[in-house]
């Protein structure tokens, strides 16, 4: 179970990304952060506080649950429906630069669902994507604008992101998917 990012590394990556967001958008006017549930939400919150430190400006934030937009919802022969959680976007998306935030970019299907969901909330000026880890293996033509770490993986591996807010510790590790993670 090799650890590929520790707390320091996570923190430095997010600080760099915050600066890149400011640079790319020439400030944070009309920028808003939307975290994809579950772990995109605390990452978006951290970026908001970093952006506040860098620019002195409050950046609005929201949380997006993509369950109702998943393309595999009705595919499972048996098994429970994924739990639907609240989407909270307390601002208009119209004409804003929306920075979508997620923990891991893998097949791209989550982001596809998130894009569809966002479009239902309005017409953003742009949508940009932040991910803490890009592990490759895309199944759709989707690419991140800001990446914490590019992490080449095999399909037999699982990338596990843990965050202080949800898991008590900041850590990214690679695990074997075949259950033998002893």
């Amino acid at each position: 179970m090799p650890i590929v990012m520790d707390a320091d590394r996570v923190s430095r990556s997010l600080t760099r990304i915050a600066h890149e967001i400011v640079e790319h958008n020439l400030g944070v006017d009309h920028v808003a952060l939307v975290g994809v549930r579950t772990r995109g939400v605390p990452i978006a919150r951290r970026l908001a506080s970093l952006l506040l430190t860098i620019t002195g400006r409050e950046v609005p934030g929201g949380a997006l649950d993509i369950t109702l937009y998943r393309d595999d919802l009705m595919k499972h022969a048996v098994g429970p429906q994924p739990i639907v959680r609240r989407t909270e976007i307390p601002f208009s998306l119209d004409d804003r630069h929306i920075v979508l935030v997620d923990d891991v970019l893998f097949t791209g299907r989550t982001i596809r669902a998130a894009l569809d969901a966002l479009i239902d909330f309005g017409r953003p000026r742009t949508i940009q994507l932040v991910v803490l880890v890009d592990r490759g293996h895309r199944e759709l033509p989707i690419k991140a604008d800001y990446v914490g770490k590019n992490l080449p993986t095999s399909l037999a591996e699982t990338v596990r992101v843990r965050l202080a807010e949800t898991d008590g510790i900041d850590e990214v590790s690679i695990e074997r998917a075949e259950g033998d993670q002893a």
């Binding site: 009705m74 022969a77 048996v78 098994g79 429970p80 429906q81 639907v84």
Partner: peptide, 9 residues
Amino acid sequence: LYLLAGGGE
């Protein structure tokens, strides 16, 4: 409806 329509059964 959401909870019943899933599962495929």
